[in-house]
Amino acid sequence: MLIRLNVNGEWREADVWPGSSLLSVLRDDLGLWGTKNACEQGECGSCSAWLDGELVASCLVLAAQADGRRVETIESLGREGELHPVQEAFLDAGAVQCGFCTPGFEVAVTDLLRHDPHPSDETIREALAGNLCRCTGYQKIVDAVHLAADRMSEAPR
């Protein structure tokens, strides 16, 4: 079936198997590989994206349900040379090791900071409970959230 969705501000079309997930459309049809495919059951958060502004696990969204809707992915945040403050903070705080979970975390962190610009440790840990990282032990990710929060409140963009 043909679906049409607004991805990172641009209307895109894809001819998909009706049982496809939004994740597979993003990666396999639209070539947006920043959104990672790992567990395909919503456990790991590495496929986090926004659907109509709401944080979702894109592996659990039926592609047909995204037809006509607005999707934002990690690619909407920044690019090489002009990173989003959340991405800068992840680098500076040492919150990136192997990097596989990083896009999902950065999307979830950006979503958190949109709703709560100065979250407590408890709030951060609850907000990121759906994202798994097997390298960092999470503390440096929590540090990165605080760093990003501080920088974003100093220099709103």
Partner: peptide, 9 residues
Amino acid sequence: VGSPQIRTR
């Protein structure tokens, strides 16, 4: 329920 990503859906 689930996680923030699950609770929006």
